[in-house]
Amino acid sequence: MTSSFSVYRLWSLMRSDFLAERRALTWAAGILIFTVLLMSLQQMQWGQMDYSMHQKLYGYALFIWGIFATSRAFRVVHDPTRNEAYLLLPASSLEKFFARLLPITVGIGIFLPIFFFALSAIVESVRMVIAGTSLPLFNPFNSEIWKLYGYYIIIQAPFFLGAIWFRRFNFLITSFAIILFYLLLAIAILITARITIGATEWQQLHGQNSLQVPETGAINHYDYLNFGIAHDLFHQLLTTNWSFLATVFWIVVALLPPVLWWIAWLRLKEVQVDHGVQ
């Protein structure tokens, strides 16, 4: 066993968490089964067929269950009756970090598609028997499924960080923080665009109600808010290299989860017990 990472201890941690959460997991699975059955019954009654029902339900399940579980991932750290025992448990911070991250990323990503495939198979064979017709089964290899999963990972990461960072209401605070972050980002982009692009294009942009930058058109170098800095570069970027910008955007987005996870791990390493004596 190396001192900072051992697969055995990681496995022991996840096993322990699973045993502790067994009841909650059973409940969650039960609710899922119930919902899918209910919706199928309802559709049978109305005679409507939603061909992407299973896929939609998978999406809801992934996001609701995933984000909910993520928000609760570090409850133990903030619980004064349990945090000491948790921090003193002989496992490294890295192991404790992965023990909480893996189930709600890799675990849920493997479990839910299998679960939905099995569930759809059962539900649809029942429907076949009763109604003589059926919907296509849930396809775990559908690219849409994995696209959804990608979005989930991106959205999950800030909630994971929020779960370790904030003592209480971490879901609400994180949601609020994300909204605030994007608002500020949008404002910053708008201001930057206004300064660098100049009034003429700005009006054009504004008029078009989108960020499509006109291919041609005079750039007013003497506009009073135009500082001339990086003017041409931005202009060029926005006019000719739109796909380049989009790539940069997606790289940043793809890097976000690992960075946020990494910060969460640093935070877990540094977490101390809150103490009654002040």
């Binding site: 900072s4 051992s6 201890r9 045993l19 000491e84 025992a85 002989p90 490294s92």
Partner: peptide, 25 residues
């Protein structure tokens, strides 16, 4: 918080907050 150190330390708190499990589990 080296695991080797943690496995050599046991702290019994004044009020044990044991989980809802049987002794065996």
């Amino acid at each position: 918080r080296n695991p080797s150190m943690l496995s050599e330390i046991y702290m019994l708190p004044e009020t044990p907050h044991l989980p809802t499990l049987t002794d065996k589990n």
